[in-house]
């Protein structure tokens, strides 16, 4: 009756995305194992072991796990499932989305993507059609392979436990894929997924320079910066800021949409935010239909004013 959670990490720090997944797992059962696979990543295993509610940590260290390539991790996970695992879970980040379908296919089961509600141990709710249709789905396969929408579950916040860390054997190296390079966007701002406030810009900003107007307000509010697809496509800001159906899904306390018209694909990534503010000069923009507070105005006038008002 075991639950296996696949940890996302960079061999030094465990990603916070594991915390809502643990929270989801506790709704399914009590025997919860976190798998940490990487290279020289004992520290990550220790961080995982401190999360309350988990039973143990499995640690698999090998050179071919250094970059957590799906090709190498999937056989390792499949080997563990034979130990009596019924649910394999990961966050529905790009890490989980890349890996979990590969695991499911190797186990000959369908996979459940991006679940938002656990109805029972085999029935889940997940968004389809850009979040416009919620589907309740029953999974008849012997093993449930699941990615969890991290904004839909309250993260487990207590971390004073010390679960057992057990080293496990690595699976043989496949060697069909190789990591070449990674460009990590460095930022001192909070992570988009966990930020309490997100301020996002769209096509209305007009150029990359104008995104600096958002940065000032983001710094005042301790906010993360998001963007619509149009803004990313136009090159105003890098891809990892894109909020929407196929980008990041966020649900902060406060979401401020600036110069974003509100295409359904964008709404899919932010409509579960607690309070939504829309600033747009087009009074007909669909974003106003879901905004709690709307300001029909020229953003180039509003943003400096907003910055002044916040500093008062």
């Amino acid at each position: 009756m075991g639950i296996l959670i696949i940890a996302e990490h960079d061999n030094h720090i465990l990603s916070e995305s594991v915390l809502p997944v643990v929270s989801a797992a506790t709704q399914l059962g009590k025997d919860i194992t976190i798998l940490v696979a990487g290279q020289d990543c004992h520290k990550v295993a220790e961080q995982a072991a401190s999360i309350n509610g988990i039973t143990r940590v499995w640690l698999a260290e090998a050179e071919h796990y250094q970059h957590q390539l799906a090709e190498e991790l999937a056989p390792l996970i499949v080997d563990q499932v034979a130990k009596g695992i019924n649910h394999v879970m990961a966050p529905s980040s790009t890490f989980g989305k890349d890996l979990m379908p590969r695991v499911a296919a190797m186990l000959n089961v369908e996979q459940l993507s991006d679940i938002t509600v656990i109805v029972s141990e085999d029935t889940f709710v997940r968004p389809t059609y850009a979040g416009n249709v919620m589907a309740t789905v029953k999974c008849e396969g012997p093993v449930k392979v699941i990615t969890v929408r991290t904004t839909a579950f309250e993260p487990v916040n207590v971390r004073d436990s010390a679960a057992e860390i057990i080293s496990i054997n690595a699976a043989p190296k496949l060697g069909v894929s190789e990591f070449v390079e990674g460009i990590v966007t460095e930022s001192d701002r909070p992570d988009l997924n966990t930020a309490r406030v997100v301020i996002s810009g769209g096509r209305g900003l007009g150029d990359a320079e104008s995104f600096k107007l958002l940065e000032k307000i983001a710094d005042q509010l301790g906010a993360a910066i998001g963007a619509s697809r149009a803004a990313v496509d136009a090159g105003y800001i890098s891809n990892d800021h894109q909020v929407g159906q196929t980008g990041r899904v966020v649900a902060p306390e406060l979401y401020i949409a600036v110069g974003i018209s509100g295409a359904i694909q964008h709404l899919a990534g932010m409509k579960d935010s607690k309070v939504i503010v829309a600033i747009n000069k087009d009074p007909e923009a669909p974003i106003f239909e879901i905004a709690d507070y709307g300001l029909v105005a020229d953003l180039f006038q509003v943003l400096p004013e907003l910055s002044d008002a916040l500093s008062k």
Binding site: E110, G131, K138, Y293, A309
Partner: peptide, 30 residues
């Protein structure tokens, strides 16, 4: 298919709120 869809429903509807006249109003409301 291994997955059975039991139910389809719309997500809770989000109603539009108010339009504000100024930045001061906005900051006050927030």
């Amino acid at each position: 298919p291994q997955l059975k869809t039991l139910k389809l429903e719309y997500p809770p509807k989000r109603n539009g709120g108010v339009r504000l006249a100024s930045v001061e109003d906005l900051v006050d409301k927030l």
